[in-house]
Design a protein around this nucleic acid. Sequence first.
DNA 1: TAGAACGTTTAGTAGTTACTAAACGAAGTA
DNA 2: TACTTCGTTTAGTAACTACTAAACGTTCTA
Lengths: 176, 176
Amino acid sequence: MTVKLPELKQNFTESLSQISRFWGFPKGMGAIFGVLYLSPTPLSLDEIVEQTGLTKGAISTEVRTLARMGLVHRSSKLGDRKDYYEAETDFYQSIRSILKERQNSEFDRAVRSVQEMLTQLESDSVSGSEADVKFVRERVKALQEFFNAIDSLASAVIKLESLGITNVTRILKVLK
Amino acid sequence: MTVKLPELKQNFTESLSQISRFWGFPKGMGAIFGVLYLSPTPLSLDEIVEQTGLTKGAISTEVRTLARMGLVHRSSKLGDRKDYYEAETDFYQSIRSILKERQNSEFDRAVRSVQEMLTQLESDSVSGSEADVKFVRERVKALQEFFNAIDSLASAVIKLESLGITNVTRILKVLK
DNA sequence: TAGAACGTTTAGTAGTTACTAAACGAAGTA
DNA sequence: TACTTCGTTTAGTAACTACTAAACGTTCTA
């Protein structure tokens, strides 16, 4: 038995919606990316409206954050007042932009705050029983080191300049 | 100028709350983990109530999901009816449990769904213009390969048996 | 100038989430 | 037995989120 292409496309966008929601993004974002990703040509805002069922307003705002994350690109044709959007197909490129975007975020602020605590703890400027301070210092330090490791891993991914999937497989071999 | 230890601990748990929320978990979870992580001894439910300001009910449920993720461990003393909780300090161990937990989740279902589409597309069981089908097939395939790469990376992390941070640094050197 | 074709912003809403307060159950103790 | 002392479950709520519908501003066109 055969499946019709438009039907399959719809299933695809639904899957992307779920994935989007799972990672804490609005499901509409996944849907928008989905239709753009499966479109051979860039789509206008109204075409996205038609294919997702969302309203212009919602798409207008969500497409902007998608662009900020580097997952879609906005372009325009000469002599055409519409904006056109297309999906980024290099996912590693996207990851890079997302990670850059997350820089200077609430997350980073919190991590920096932990870093400051550690320096305080290491400079003996914390009052309390010797043993207690030592214990807390070691725990905080361990967490800080973990954060650093994650951070290095992230920036390592950022540095992977469009070498694609083969690179990841290379890493995995090393891990064996 | 010096800071008092309890004050610093409180700042710490607030930072963890923010980090928790950033990753899509309730901020209470971060706070609970925070006080457990900075406690030299396992804490009872009521002690956590006291230090976080949350109610027993909330902690009861959230501590359970923390345990399921392997971030805290529940234990009990003989002749003491209370349960005691302590934080896992091997973060790589925790990551492993979290990733295992996320297996069989909504995320995985969606990914499998995409996998099924791909097999359909590759077995010529999709009706539509030749060029269109080909285009969609290639796009879906690229996404699928990306998912596989991420998945391999995840299971590679799972396999890192308590080798700690040095291992991550090893990986990073390879990436250079 | 009026009007159409865009994208954006705003006000309002349905649904969800992270809690609290309190009832509940189980298990030990007098 | 009744009384504590635990942890759990449930009902309700305040705050937030992802939207919709519609007003709005801008730019092109007649």
